[in-house]
């Protein structure tokens, strides 16, 4: 009796201030905002605005991770996606001299086909997924499953080898990006001759 009472108190403390129904409502609202921002990202004609709406979509996904008690991944999402990937994309837009205002040719000619494919895929997948998981509930009570402590323990206890392999991959990507983007000696001389 006392044991369950303590457990309930601990669970309530561990789960924060939202009731289970509250979590569902907030998840749905944030999901609607995320989906809306994603749709604006792929349909807007202003390229810089697309990158800024992508921030809203990715931030919304970070909040969804928090609601699913995956706290560490939420902060990693904020750091890497919102913090660096979007900045990289904005730099890319700047360096490719993207037009600042409205650009009429942001969408290519196969837009109706793309819309048909996306709507068909969405209908099929939503039908299958909703039918398959209609009686499944996630149990969010109890200790949070994605705290930094838990994530660090599993990452460095069970996933060390993939983690180190990933660091090699990141290093390779870094070197590759530098090699791709530095000018060769021949290009430099050509550029100088062209300037003269």
């Amino acid at each position: 009796m006392t044991g369950t009472g303590t457990h309930d108190v601990l669970a309530a403390q561990a789960h924060g201030f939202l009731s289970p129904t509250g979590v569902e409502i907030v998840f749905l609202l944030v999901g609607v905002v995320t989906l809306g921002a994603a749709i604006v990202t792929v349909t807007t004609r202003q390229l810089v605005h697309a990158a800024l709406w992508l921030v809203v979509a990715l931030g919304g996904i970070a909040v969804e991770y928090l609601l699913l008690t995956a706290e560490f991944i939420a902060w990693v999402q904020v750091l890497i996606y919102v913090g660096s990937v979007v900045v990289l994309l904005l730099f890319g837009l700047m360096l490719t001299k993207a037009p600042i205002g409205r650009s009429p040719d942001a969408d290519s000619a196969n837009r109706p086909a793309a819309l048909a494919v996306a709507v068909a895929a969405a209908a099929a997948l939503v039908w299958v997924v909703a039918d398959a998981f209609r009686t499944t509930w996630i149990d969010l009570r109890g200790a949070p499953q994605g705290t930094t402590k838990v994530s660090g323990e599993i990452l460095f206890r069970h996933w060390v080898l993939p983690f180190e392999a990933l660091s090699v991959l990141l290093l390779a990507a870094l070197v590759g990006a530098i090699v791709l983007s530095r000018r060769t000696e021949r290009e430099n001389t050509e550029r100088k001759n062209g300037a003269r």
Partner: peptide, 13 residues
């Protein structure tokens, strides 16, 4: 929480 919510959101995204 119903598992359908995150799954359907992921599908739509």
């Amino acid at each position: 929480m119903h598992l359908v919510y995150p799954a359907v959101l992921a599908v739509l995204l």
